[in-house]
Structure formats: C-alpha cells, structure tokens
C-alpha cells in the first residue's frame, strides 16, 4: 500500500516522465525482484562498503565509468563487461541511488544512456531518504550470475556535448545552464566550496549561461526532487529557459550537471538537453574561448 501511495506521490508531481523515478517504498518492495538491479553510486568510496541497500551493487564513477588513461568514459566493450559483472541484461531495470542527493547516481544514469541502457530509474531521495526512513542496510556484497550483455555502441551525440559543439552553441546564442555554485559562476572561486582547486586557469562562466545551482532542484530535507511546478518556476520562469530549445548543462567535470540534465530531460520534458562533461575544467583552461564574469 505504501508502495502505491509513494509512487502516486511521484506521479502527482506533474513530471513529464514520472516513470524515470521510483520511490524508496517501491525499491523496498522489489529488493528480491530478479528483473531489478539496484546500483549505488557515490562520491565517497567508503560509503557502499560501510552499508548499502540489501542486494545493491556498486558502480563507481572513477573505477567503473571513466577510462583509466584518457579523459573519457569507458568503451562499449568495457560497458558490456560491467553489465555482465553486475548481472544486468538489457531487460533489467537498473535503479540508481547514492549519496549527495543522487548527484553521482544521476551521473551514472547519464553514462548508462551513452550506451543506450534506457531501462533505468533513479530512486527519489537517494541514500539520504533511505537512511532517514530507517530502512534495512547491510555490508553483505551480493553476487549475481554473470550475464551476456549484447554488443553495444556508445552514442554520445544524443546526450553529450563537446567543446566544439558548445562553441557553436554559444555563437548561435543557445541556452546554457551553469549548475555550479554562484561563486564559481561569478569567477570569484575556481572550485566548489570545500573542494580542491582542480586547476582551471580562468574563472567565470560560458557566455549567456544561466546560473541555476544543481541542488536547487531538490528538497534538502530528504533529497527528493521538487515538484514539476516548482522546477518550472526555477528553470523556466525565473531563469527563462525554454523547454523546446536546445539546452546544454555544465558544471566542473559534468557530474553535478548530469543531475540537472536529468531534471530538465525527465522531470520537465526538455526536448534536447545535453551534458557538457568537459565543463569548466576544460572551458576554463582552453585558449581563446569566450568567458563572461
């Protein structure tokens, strides 16, 4: 019954694609569903080993999703190997959750879209809500039989923007969303508050980008996404973003902006939104690109 009520709550928020979210109740009732794979993705590598949702596997953004040598995501071959290791087939519904209000869960979700695994969801509220509700957690690391995931091709174009595209987008006066902190946007700081400076040589933002820090899309008390009317107010009314115009979101390395990408694409139904993962660590170091302060 709780499951129905909480999923109805998500359905009642007016999202364009409410099916992209599942509730903690829903997850609790599908812990043993063989068609569901629960995936935890965190920034803090100690969190999953310390405890996690029973049956959940870990997908780590550095170890599993990023290429070890060059700045890029894993190859299609590595992705199929990852899917095999965590026991996922194309028919498996992958439910992501994690720390920091699902920031890294959305990042993993976005990377999965590069490989076309659209059968994916985000657990609304993430690890914070699960913990606050006092739900079961374990240190037991599950083991699933390896699957044979079919060969895939990585298709960046639908969801990923590169610097050259962003330059054209800027020249065409396209809309951009800068999801970093206001201080980073203003160029008064080169990194997130309390995070190390990762070496951008210039501060500021991409011309005409709107400043909408990513966390404004969530309710701080439980990490759930705000309702569609609240998101419309934030992105469309206050900041003038149009859902039918091509939109590029960026941050520092593309992780915070994947959270905003998710909100714009799935919750508000923006037709063409991409994540620029080169973000400020590329733009702020590039020679000759336009910058505003």
């Amino acid at each position: 019954m709780n499951n129905n009520r909480s999923m109805k709550d998500i359905a009642s928020r007016g999202y364009a694609h409410p099916e992209a979210l599942v509730s903690t109740d829903w997850v609790a009732e599908h812990l043993h569903d063989p068609n569901i794979r629960i995936v935890e993705s965190n920034e803090d590598l100690l969190l999953y080993p310390s405890n996690h949702i029973p049956g959940a596997v870990q997908v780590d953004w550095t170890q599993d999703l990023n290429d070890k040598i060059q700045r890029d995501y894993i190859s299609a071959k590595a992705f199929t190997a990852l899917m095999s290791r965590i026991g996922v087939t194309p028919k498996t519904t992958v439910v992501f959750y994690g720390d920091k209000n699902n920031w890294w869960a959305c990042y993993a979700f976005w990377v999965f879209q590069l490989f076309g695994h659209t059968n994916a969801r985000i657990m609304d509220g993430g690890r914070l809500k699960w913990e606050k509700e006092g739900r079961a957690m374990t240190r037991e690391v599950p083991s699933y039989a390896a699957t044979k995931y079919p060969k895939v091709t990585r298709k960046d174009a639908p969801v990923r923007a590169f610097k050259a595209q962003v330059l054209k987008h800027v020249a065409a006066k396209g809309q951009l969303v800068d999801v970093r902190s206001p201080e980073e946007y203003a160029g008064t700081r080169m990194h997130m508050p309390d995070y190390p400076n990762e070496g951008a040589l210039r501060g500021g933002h991409i011309p005409r980008a709107k400043s909408v820090p990513w966390a404004r899309a969530i309710n701080a008390e439980d990490g759930t996404f705000k309702t569609a009317p609240e998101l419309v107010e934030l992105y469309q009314k206050t900041n003038g973003l149009k859902k039918d115009k091509p939109t590029i979101a960026y941050c520092r390395i593309g992780e915070r902006s994947s959270h905003t990408w998710f909100a714009l694409k799935y919750l508000l139904g923006f037709k063409n939104v991409k994540n620029y993962d080169g973000s400020w660590t590329e733009w702020g170091n590039s020679v000759g690109v336009p910058i505003e302060k």
Binding site: N42, E43, L45, K100, D194, P196
Partner: peptide
C-alpha cells in the same frame, strides 16, 4: 585511493 574529492579537504 579511498579519498574522495569532497572528503579530502
């Protein structure tokens, strides 16, 4: 390698 970006500081 167990240190995360936000934790180090």
């Amino acid at each position: 390698q167990n240190i995360s970006m936000g934790k180090g500081m």
